[in-house]
Protein backbone atom coordinates (compact mmCIF):
# COMPACT_ATOMS: atom_id res chain seq x y z
CA UNK A 1 0.00 0.00 0.00
CA UNK A 2 2.84 2.37 0.87
CA UNK A 3 4.48 1.73 -2.49
CA UNK A 4 1.44 3.10 -4.24
CA UNK A 5 1.12 6.85 -4.61
CA UNK A 6 -2.61 6.48 -3.94
CA UNK A 7 -1.83 4.62 -0.71
CA UNK A 8 0.64 7.24 0.42
CA UNK A 9 -1.93 9.95 -0.25
CA UNK A 10 -4.33 8.05 1.97
CA UNK A 11 -1.76 7.95 4.75
CA UNK A 12 -1.50 11.73 4.37
CA UNK A 13 -5.25 12.11 4.54
CA UNK A 14 -5.61 9.89 7.63
CA UNK A 15 -2.71 11.48 9.51
CA UNK A 16 -3.92 14.92 8.44
CA UNK A 17 -7.44 14.16 9.66
CA UNK A 18 -6.00 12.86 12.94
CA UNK A 19 -4.09 16.10 13.42
CA UNK A 20 -7.19 18.15 12.59
CA UNK A 21 -9.07 16.20 15.25
CA UNK A 22 -6.33 17.08 17.72
CA UNK A 23 -6.48 20.72 16.70
CA UNK A 24 -10.22 20.80 17.44
CA UNK A 25 -9.83 19.19 20.87
CA UNK A 26 -6.89 21.48 21.64
CA UNK A 27 -9.02 24.51 20.73
CA UNK A 28 -11.80 23.39 23.08
CA UNK A 29 -9.28 22.89 25.88
CA UNK A 30 -7.76 26.30 25.29
CA UNK A 31 -11.16 27.94 25.66
CA UNK A 32 -10.74 27.45 29.44
CA UNK A 33 -8.34 30.39 29.15
CA UNK A 34 -11.37 32.70 28.95
CA UNK A 35 -12.59 31.48 32.34
CA UNK A 36 -9.43 32.74 33.99
CA UNK A 37 -6.36 31.31 35.69
CA UNK A 38 -8.20 28.84 37.90
CA UNK A 39 -9.86 27.07 34.97
CA UNK A 40 -6.94 26.65 32.59
CA UNK A 41 -4.45 25.82 35.34
CA UNK A 42 -6.82 23.16 36.64
CA UNK A 43 -7.31 21.83 33.10
CA UNK A 44 -3.56 21.67 32.43
CA UNK A 45 -2.94 20.08 35.80
CA UNK A 46 -5.65 17.47 35.19
CA UNK A 47 -4.20 16.59 31.80
CA UNK A 48 -0.76 16.00 33.23
CA UNK A 49 -2.09 13.64 35.85
CA UNK A 50 -2.74 11.14 33.02
CA UNK A 51 1.01 10.49 32.96
CA UNK A 52 1.79 7.51 30.69
CA UNK A 53 -1.39 8.13 28.70
CA UNK A 54 -0.13 11.59 27.80
CA UNK A 55 3.11 10.10 26.60
CA UNK A 56 1.50 7.43 24.45
CA UNK A 57 -0.74 10.13 23.01
CA UNK A 58 2.29 12.29 22.24
CA UNK A 59 3.98 9.34 20.59
CA UNK A 60 0.97 8.75 18.33
CA UNK A 61 0.87 12.45 17.41
CA UNK A 62 4.59 12.42 16.71
CA UNK A 63 4.29 9.39 14.41
CA UNK A 64 1.36 10.94 12.55
CA UNK A 65 3.29 14.15 12.14
CA UNK A 66 6.46 12.46 10.88
CA UNK A 67 4.56 10.22 8.42
CA UNK A 68 2.67 13.24 7.13
CA UNK A 69 5.83 15.30 6.83
CA UNK A 70 7.79 12.55 5.07
CA UNK A 71 5.11 11.62 2.54
CA UNK A 72 4.16 15.27 2.04
CA UNK A 73 7.66 16.16 0.94
CA UNK A 74 8.12 12.96 -1.04
CA UNK A 75 4.84 13.33 -2.95
CA UNK A 76 5.53 16.99 -3.65
CA UNK A 77 8.95 16.18 -5.10
CA UNK A 78 7.49 13.36 -7.23
CA UNK A 79 4.72 15.63 -8.43
CA UNK A 80 7.12 18.40 -9.39
CA UNK A 81 9.27 15.93 -11.30
CA UNK A 82 6.22 14.78 -13.23
CA UNK A 83 5.90 18.24 -14.81
CA UNK A 84 9.50 19.12 -15.66
CA UNK A 85 8.66 21.87 -18.12
CA UNK A 86 6.06 24.47 -17.30
CA UNK A 87 3.83 26.28 -19.77
CA UNK A 88 4.73 29.67 -21.16
CA UNK A 89 1.08 30.61 -20.62
CA UNK A 90 -1.11 28.77 -18.15
CA UNK A 91 -4.67 29.64 -17.33
CA UNK A 92 -5.80 27.73 -14.26
CA UNK A 93 -9.51 27.34 -13.75
CA UNK A 94 -10.05 25.24 -10.64
CA UNK A 95 -7.16 25.14 -8.21
CA UNK A 96 -6.51 27.65 -5.45
CA UNK A 97 -3.48 29.39 -3.99
CA UNK A 98 -4.01 27.26 -0.88
CA UNK A 99 -3.97 24.08 -2.94
CA UNK A 100 -0.76 24.97 -4.70
CA UNK A 101 1.13 26.04 -1.58
CA UNK A 102 0.40 22.96 0.55
CA UNK A 103 4.03 22.02 1.06
CA UNK A 104 4.98 25.56 2.06
CA UNK A 105 2.07 26.11 4.41
CA UNK A 106 2.81 22.65 5.83
CA UNK A 107 6.48 23.38 6.41
CA UNK A 108 5.56 26.69 8.05
CA UNK A 109 3.18 24.87 10.38
CA UNK A 110 5.96 22.39 11.15
CA UNK A 111 8.43 25.14 12.03
CA UNK A 112 5.80 26.89 14.12
CA UNK A 113 4.95 23.66 15.92
CA UNK A 114 8.58 23.27 16.93
CA UNK A 115 8.60 26.78 18.36
CA UNK A 116 5.22 26.29 20.03
CA UNK A 117 6.39 23.14 21.80
CA UNK A 118 9.60 24.81 22.94
CA UNK A 119 7.58 27.75 24.20
CA UNK A 120 4.59 26.21 25.96
CA UNK A 121 5.40 22.52 26.41
CA UNK A 122 9.13 22.45 27.17
CA UNK A 123 8.95 26.12 28.24
CA UNK A 124 12.53 26.93 27.34
CA UNK A 125 11.93 30.08 25.28
CA UNK A 126 11.18 32.36 28.27
CA UNK A 127 12.29 30.49 31.38
CA UNK A 128 11.34 33.60 33.40
CA UNK A 129 7.64 32.82 32.95
CA UNK A 130 7.81 29.02 32.57
CA UNK A 131 4.68 27.58 34.17
CA UNK A 132 6.51 24.52 35.46
CA UNK A 133 8.77 26.61 37.68
CA UNK A 134 6.21 29.30 38.55
CA UNK A 135 3.30 27.71 40.39
CA UNK A 136 0.05 29.54 40.99
CA UNK A 137 -1.13 30.26 44.57
CA UNK A 138 -2.34 26.69 45.07
CA UNK A 139 0.78 25.07 43.65
CA UNK A 140 -0.26 24.19 40.09
CA UNK A 141 1.91 25.27 37.11
CA UNK A 142 0.70 28.76 36.22
CA UNK A 143 -0.17 28.20 32.55
CA UNK A 144 -2.47 31.21 32.48
CA UNK A 145 0.25 33.70 33.37
CA UNK A 146 2.72 32.10 30.97
CA UNK A 147 0.32 32.38 28.04
CA UNK A 148 -0.93 35.86 28.88
CA UNK A 149 2.53 37.35 29.42
CA UNK A 150 3.70 35.78 26.14
CA UNK A 151 0.91 37.20 24.03
CA UNK A 152 1.23 40.64 25.54
CA UNK A 153 4.32 40.89 23.37
CA UNK A 154 3.49 42.03 19.85
CA UNK A 155 6.19 39.85 18.28
CA UNK A 156 4.70 36.64 19.70
CA UNK A 157 1.14 37.66 18.96
CA UNK A 158 2.08 38.37 15.34
CA UNK A 159 4.10 35.19 15.01
CA UNK A 160 1.07 33.19 16.09
CA UNK A 161 -1.27 34.97 13.74
CA UNK A 162 1.06 34.46 10.77
CA UNK A 163 1.48 30.78 11.60
CA UNK A 164 -2.24 30.35 12.05
CA UNK A 165 -2.71 31.86 8.60
CA UNK A 166 -0.49 29.10 7.22
CA UNK A 167 -2.62 26.56 9.07
CA UNK A 168 -5.78 28.13 7.69
CA UNK A 169 -4.39 27.92 4.14
CA UNK A 170 -3.40 24.30 4.66
CA UNK A 171 -6.86 23.41 5.95
CA UNK A 172 -8.67 25.50 3.36
CA UNK A 173 -7.55 23.00 0.73
CA UNK A 174 -7.03 19.90 2.77
CA UNK A 175 -10.30 19.29 4.61
CA UNK A 176 -12.08 19.01 1.28
CA UNK A 177 -9.12 17.15 -0.20
CA UNK A 178 -8.98 14.49 2.50
CA UNK A 179 -12.65 13.60 1.91
CA UNK A 180 -11.88 13.10 -1.77
CA UNK A 181 -8.72 11.10 -1.07
CA UNK A 182 -10.56 8.75 1.25
CA UNK A 183 -13.34 8.34 -1.27
CA UNK A 184 -15.91 9.93 1.04
CA UNK A 185 -17.14 12.17 -1.72
CA UNK A 186 -19.83 11.94 -4.33
CA UNK A 187 -21.21 14.33 -6.92
CA UNK A 188 -23.93 15.63 -4.61
CA UNK A 189 -21.85 15.99 -1.44
CA UNK A 190 -18.98 17.57 -3.32
CA UNK A 191 -19.97 21.26 -3.10
CA UNK A 192 -21.13 20.81 0.50
CA UNK A 193 -17.84 19.23 1.56
CA UNK A 194 -15.83 21.93 -0.21
CA UNK A 195 -17.72 24.84 1.32
CA UNK A 196 -17.94 23.28 4.79
CA UNK A 197 -14.22 22.49 4.71
CA UNK A 198 -13.35 26.05 3.81
CA UNK A 199 -15.66 27.53 6.42
CA UNK A 200 -14.25 25.14 9.04
CA UNK A 201 -10.71 26.24 8.14
CA UNK A 202 -11.66 29.88 8.65
CA UNK A 203 -13.48 29.10 11.92
CA UNK A 204 -10.45 27.23 13.25
CA UNK A 205 -8.30 30.21 12.31
CA UNK A 206 -10.61 32.67 14.07
CA UNK A 207 -10.92 30.44 17.11
CA UNK A 208 -7.19 30.23 17.60
CA UNK A 209 -6.25 33.73 16.45
CA UNK A 210 -8.65 35.14 19.05
CA UNK A 211 -6.27 34.15 21.87
CA UNK A 212 -3.28 36.34 20.89
CA UNK A 213 -5.61 39.13 19.70
CA UNK A 214 -7.74 39.23 22.86
CA UNK A 215 -4.70 39.03 25.11
CA UNK A 216 -2.63 41.57 23.20
CA UNK A 217 -5.51 44.02 23.26
CA UNK A 218 -5.58 43.64 27.02
CA UNK A 219 -9.01 42.03 27.42
CA UNK A 220 -7.57 39.08 29.30
CA UNK A 221 -5.01 39.61 32.01
Amino acid sequence: MIKSSVGRKMVMAVTGAGMIFFILVHLLGNLTLYSGPAAINAYAYALHRFGPLIWSFRLVMFCMFMLHLFFGIQLTLENRAARPQSYAVRNERATTFAGKSMVWSGLLIGAFLLFHLLQFTLQVINPGIAAASHPDPIGRPDVFTMVVLSFQRLSYALLYIVSLTALALHLYHSIQSSFQTLGLNGERTFPVVTVTGRVAAIMIFLGYAAFPIVIYMGFLR
Binding site: S4, L75, N79, R83, G99
Partner: peptide, 19 residues
Protein backbone atom coordinates in the same frame (compact mmCIF):
# COMPACT_ATOMS: atom_id res chain seq x y z
CA UNK B 1 -2.39 2.99 -10.31
CA UNK B 2 0.97 1.25 -10.09
CA UNK B 3 1.42 1.59 -13.85
CA UNK B 4 0.51 5.26 -13.58
CA UNK B 5 3.31 5.86 -11.10
CA UNK B 6 5.77 3.78 -13.10
CA UNK B 7 5.09 5.77 -16.26
CA UNK B 8 6.18 8.93 -14.46
CA UNK B 9 2.81 10.56 -13.86
CA UNK B 10 2.41 12.46 -10.60
CA UNK B 11 -0.23 11.70 -8.02
CA UNK B 12 -3.49 13.49 -7.39
CA UNK B 13 -3.54 16.45 -4.99
CA UNK B 14 -7.18 17.23 -5.70
CA UNK B 15 -6.67 20.48 -7.57
CA UNK B 16 -9.47 19.48 -10.00
CA UNK B 17 -7.85 21.19 -12.97
CA UNK B 18 -8.43 17.92 -14.85
CA UNK B 19 -12.20 18.17 -14.56
Amino acid sequence: TEAMLKEGFGSCSNHYECQ
